[in-house]
């Protein structure tokens, strides 16, 4: 039954092509709403960073470039596997489709796992905003120097002048932004499970693979958000 293109055209559409274009356009419009959704957080980030640049430098130095960079690579790789899943669906390779979807999902969970490790670290070091938040920029500066990091004039200045309250603001935004991103990842992982089930049931073929394609669009979008979050949160003022 999966081989008949017409079986997949819903009653209100005239053709499979119309249905496919509608699905694609609909997903892109949804992604526009997602862009604006994250836009509110990015606006808050840009405004506060322009007000308190030194606190942002301190905040970002307490994040791990290693973990953040690793996660960036993981997400980019998952975007590749997702693109390959769509490619496999387009070319009627059902087993390959399933395999790439599984791989995408696994990479997504790796990302989330690393995120859990990072969050736990922040919790331990009292970097979660709220009553227990505590940061001492001068002590952090001493730790950096003890670790042998070259501390230039700008960096020293930032640590000396940063207001701990403003660093807390950085962490409020860090958790809001990465948290919102993680929620999208979890939704994405759920979609992967649904896609996998349908792939295994043989619902998709070169004649009908809209769900694989539009879910892919969503997954890539979540990847793009991280492409911006990584430099904006982890890489500020490292020089």
């Amino acid at each position: 039954m999966s081989s008949h293109a017409h079986a997949h055209v819903a009653h209100h559409f005239e053709s499979a092509e119309q249905q496919r274009q509608s699905a694609q356009l609909g997903m892109w419009i949804f992604l526009v709403t997602e862009v604006m959704f994250f836009g509110g957080l990015f606006a808050a980030y840009v405004v506060y960073r322009s007000l308190y640049p030194e606190a942002w430098v301190v905040g970002s130095h307490l994040l791990s470039i290693g973990l953040g960079g690793f996660n960036t690579a993981v997400l980019l790789a998952s975007s590749l596997t997702m693109a390959l899943a769509v490619h496999a669906a387009q070319t009627d390779k059902r087993n390959a489709t399933a395999m790439w979807i599984v791989l995408t999902m696994v990479l997504g969970f790796v990302f989330l796992g690393v995120k859990v490790v990072e969050y736990a670290g922040k919790f331990e070091h009292h970097l979660v905003p709220g009553a227990h938040f505590h940061v001492d920029p001068m002590a952090e500066l001493a730790k950096l120097e003890a670790a042998g990091v070259h501390v230039g004039q700008h960096l020293r200045h930032a640590f000396e002048t940063a207001n701990p309250s403003h660093v807390q603001l950085f962490y409020s935004l860090y958790f809001a932004m990465t948290g919102m991103h993680a929620v999208h990842m979890i939704i994405g992982a759920g979609l992967m499970i649904w896609l996998l089930a349908n792939t295994l049931k043989g619902r998709y073929s070169s004649a009908y693979y809209n769900p694989v394609e539009v879910t892919g669009l969503y997954w890539h979008f979540v990847d793009i958000v991280w492409i911006f979050l990584f430099p904006m949160l982890y890489l500020i003022g490292r020089h």
């Binding site: 030194e54 000396e160 002048t161 940063a162 207001n163 309250s165 403003h166």
Partner: peptide, 19 residues
């Protein structure tokens, strides 16, 4: 409230926080 945020040139950040 927070003397170290905009420190005047030539002075060390030694003033206590009055917040």
């Amino acid at each position: 409230l927070n003397p170290h945020a905009k420190l005047v040139a030539g002075f060390a950040p030694v003033m206590p926080v009055f917040k």
